[in-house]
Design a binder for these strands. Structure first.
Lengths: 160, 160
DNA sequence: GTAGTATAGTTAGGAAGCTAATTAACTGTG
DNA sequence: CACAGTTAATTAGCTTCCTAACTATACTAC
């Protein structure tokens, strides 16, 4: 109730709200290409991986990269396979695993999106000065590390 | 591809990742009280409204406060009513509208959560200095205003 | 006072996330 | 080599979000 209590709670609410607004803004952008923001996350991640020379990622790796659980990835990949944007192929070294990789159609889509993507993001971020953007990125990065550490050490189970 | 392009995209990814991590950390906290983070959002909002003297909020107002669409609110309220935490009552002045308000049970739950809530949030935010927290809140607030303005002016439809 | 429009809420159907439980395959130890 | 434990992915079933379309009420303007 005091300012001391309310301030942190507000920082929290700000974050949730910001992401909500961002998703509303980005949705029409991606919709022009027939995909969702989450799907873009998968495609962009695979694209980035290709740039390092690897053909694709296993489902588990994709799960970790995107910070979503494996069952959610299964569903996403299902839909992307149906859309012919990614492949799910066997891995020689491990019969259980599947490699997810871009199809030519998927690769072409990514390059098409990237052509206008920077402009879109600039438009959205130009509400912040370059300094503020850098600050935001830096603070969030440090925050992420802290949160990851809390998760890894099972902090929430022990609290109170 | 260049640093200039990659920096903004990363700020974006940071935000999504941060919220993902936060939700993972908060979920067990709320689970101890038998509710989800989203449900807490509704209960806390109603609680805040009560502090101003109003009995509750119409569904539309709740939708705007929480930055989620009316159909989503309908579902949330349905479940909360089933859990006996909120009421959905008629409004005299408008036959169409429904007023959502806390039940005694809901009010009791909110106060019970609030007792440990500040501690939980402090534990999570103590990865950031007080300065950083203030900066984050301030930058996000300005960002939100900008995003809201883009949405209100239909910027995304016009872009590119 | 009736016609047309706007607003409040719900319904239907889908996407994206979750946990818990299952299946199949790999690994390592006796 | 066999068996125990681990790991990769999926399935089932849930919540929470969405859009589009609908119903019912309220408002407005003639």
């Amino acid at each position: 109730m005091t300012i001391l209590q309310q301030q942190p709670e507000n920082a929290f609410r700000s974050l949730v709200k910001t992401v909500g607004l961002l998703e509303r803004l980005m949705q029409p952008h991606f919709a022009r290409f027939g995909i969702s923001g989450s799907q873009w996350g998968v495609l962009r991640t695979l694209n980035r991986v290709e740039e390092t020379g690897q053909p694709g990622l296993r489902l588990t790796d994709l799960s970790e990269q995107l910070v979503i659980r494996p069952p959610s990835v299964t569903g996403m990949v299902d839909r992307l396979v149906r859309m012919k944007l990614v492949n799910r192929t066997k891995v020689a070294s491990d019969t259980r695993a599947r490699l997810v990789s871009l199809t030519p159609k998927g690769r072409e889509l990514v390059t098409r999106v990237l052509k206008v993507h920077a402009g879109q993001i600039d438009g959205i971020l130009n509400g912040l000065s370059a300094d503020e953007q850098a600050t935001l990125h830096c603070v969030l990065g440090r925050f992420d590390d802290h949160l990851q550490q809390l998760i890894d050490t099972g902090w929430m189970a022990a609290a109170e």
